[in-house]
Design a protein around this nucleic acid. Structure first.
Lengths: 351, 351
DNA sequence: TTTGCGTGTGAACACGCGTTCATGGGCATA
DNA sequence: TATGCCCATGAACGCGTGTTCACACGCAAA
């Protein structure tokens, strides 16, 4: 190639002015086909690529999206974050956009936040995507105030649906409904739930969906069986342990876990405390974590099409960057019941 | 902030010239402390960040590394690629560098390669990292020829240790040795191996290490038990199936799989053909894939500290970018035997 | 006082490209 | 042939910063 060649040189070689080269590159209408081809030929021959920095300086967009991911622990393997990351990169890439990724362990680390902001601003990103950010994160608010287009995943902002802010959340009603429907179809009536952090979208959203589904089946939501959690495996384990310590008079026959990680912890606790799954207790998860099919028992769960979600998120953000529009959105991801071995129909005696 | 503020404005507000502002930002020596502080105060007050595009245009580095990852199928979950990706991003990030990521399903897709090259060149990256690229990939060769610093993971280039090319590979001898030592300590003498693609570094490297370890224990390498594979689960399955179809006179009592994915496939095939693991055949893997602890039986394997590797890779590449030096390297990652349930000691009768 | 030198600073140029403005030429119409 | 208009294209400016060069100033030495 020619790290060094520039449009002036191309112009000279093609026997035109630099302006014309620029017009060809930017697809101006009033360039005759003959001129266009002449220039293109030289461009390809010398493998010329316009310098993005110069283009940006001259007023073009950077075509860069800042991706800000909070991953307590590790994006490594045991998390769907890496899937989200990869899909966003792929989707943006296919539209000529590039992704500047920051992975942060804890949003509270101010120094890190400062660094992130600096790099985003220095590089003049066109927009940002935040995954896993807590409610009303100052960094997000600042960036929106500064005019950035921002997409937020799993961020609960009731009543704050201003423009320039895209909130990508899940339509949990269908998915949670599928889970409860399935449990009911197996004969379960005493159904409990382990929830997640109520400050994030998924917590209240799934709770509401759970309640709606139970009501649809005219089943009672027993408050004692509504266990608090925090989206991770450990919290599922603790929820069950704490619950059983209270020596409840009556146990549910099935539990809906807010996600698969919580379900893993819950099943582990149940087994350790001598309650067999699904023999004595059915457990259903949510997300279809890649571990779920290898878990013992293989976890029955609701599969969510995250890949499609992220694809649409990226596309939507880019559209909003290019067209200038931006509105609050709720996405409805496809959900699907995946039947494995952690749920079982109720013996008639227990009905 | 002030997407709009620039160094001219800062200079005006601080009562100095733009040159002085630039000197402060770039830490020039001959700026008196008093002037420096005066300027810094204004910079912080107005939350000013220099425009990277302008800096680059004026001759600075982009502080951007292109990461090129080939992931047949998905980086999503079932792969260590996502771990590598995340760690490289984190490591580069901590040194003020940013990572431009490309995920490609197949290196053969020329259009995609063209796009990648375009974006790398357009954005004037300082260097590139290639993960999973096949041998003598033209894109890599071109980039090296164009003067880029390039780091290559798992890329076997015997006799091609020119400058400007960093080849990051693993010291497999220790790890493979640990695996064989363990099998021998359990009483195994008839040990087979399922290998990977011999065109990539890991294949020949692990084979050599296997042979060395066997020789150390004065055990014979039986050619019939050296099964070909391709690093993925399917190839492990096929290797075992094909091997058993030959109705070998004698079976090995233990198998060393080139990685955990291959081991998963092998175990699955063994079970389907009625050979119990570890009852009749011990299987040991390599990598400590996150699925390994959930596999049934939980897989005994060799854990490799990939995170540390990637960290060093990124650091080394950045050093080579900044100092200009670049040489061939082999890294010795820490390895550790992880004993789970896929290996068992030999009954005395079989010894 | 004069000379010399070092230190701090501003003016000016370069980086590569997009875009506006002006101009020249070709063609159709009067 | 003269006039008008549109199309194609080149010249020139601006984007924000780094860096070189030259110069003014202050102080020490002669």
């Amino acid at each position: 190639m020619s790290k060094e060649i520039n449009s002036t040189e191309i112009a000279r070689l093609a026997g035109v002015s630099r302006s014309t080269v620029s017009r060809v590159i930017n697809n101006y209408a009033n360039v005759p086909e003959q001129t266009k081809q002449k220039v293109m030929k030289v461009i390809q021959q010398y493998n010329y690529f316009p310098n993005l920095s110069a283009q940006v300086l001259a007023g073009k967009r950077t075509r860069t999206i800042g991706l800000f991911m909070i991953d307590s622990g590790r994006v490594s393997g045991d998390s769907i974050s890496s899937l989200l990351l990869a899909r966003i990169i792929e989707s943006a890439s296919s539209q000529g956009y590039y992704v500047l990724t920051h992975i942060v362990r804890d949003m509270k680390d101010l120094d890190e936040a400062r660094t992130i902001k600096e790099s985003f601003y220095q590089r003049r990103i066109d927009g940002g995507i935040f995954i896993g950010a807590a409610n009303h994160e100052p960094l997000i608010e600042e960036m929106i105030a500064d005019g950035f287009k921002v997409g937020i995943v799993d961020h609960y902002l009731p009543g704050r649906m201003e423009p320039n802010r895209l909130v990508y959340n899940f339509d949990n009603e269908t998915g949670v409904g599928q889970a409860i429907d399935y449990l009911v179809s197996l004969g379960h009536k005493r159904i409990g739930m382990i929830n997640g952090d109520m400050n994030r979208y998924s917590g209240p959203s799934k709770l509401k969906s759970f309640q709606a589904a139970m009501q649809r089946h005219q089943l009672q939501v027993v408050q004692q069986w509504m266990l608090p959690g925090d989206f991770n495996e450990e919290s599922g384990y603790k929820a069950i342990t704490a619950f059983l310590k209270t020596e409840p008079a009556e146990l549910p026959t099935a539990i809906f876990a807010v996600n698969d990680s919580v379900a893993f912890g819950a099943v582990r606790a149940l087994k350790e405390l001598g309650i067999s799954v699904p023999g004595q207790m059915s457990v259903i998860g949510f997300d279809d974590h890649f571990r779920s099919s290898y878990f013992s028992p293989a976890l029955t769960t609701i599969r969510v099409d995250f890949a499609d979600m992220m694809d649409r998120l990226a596309k939507s953000l880019i559209t909003s960057i290019e067209k200038g529009a931006a509105a609050f959105q709720i996405f409805s991801a496809e959900t699907e019941l995946v039947v494995r071995h952690s749920c079982q129909s109720m013996p008639v005696t227990q009905l």
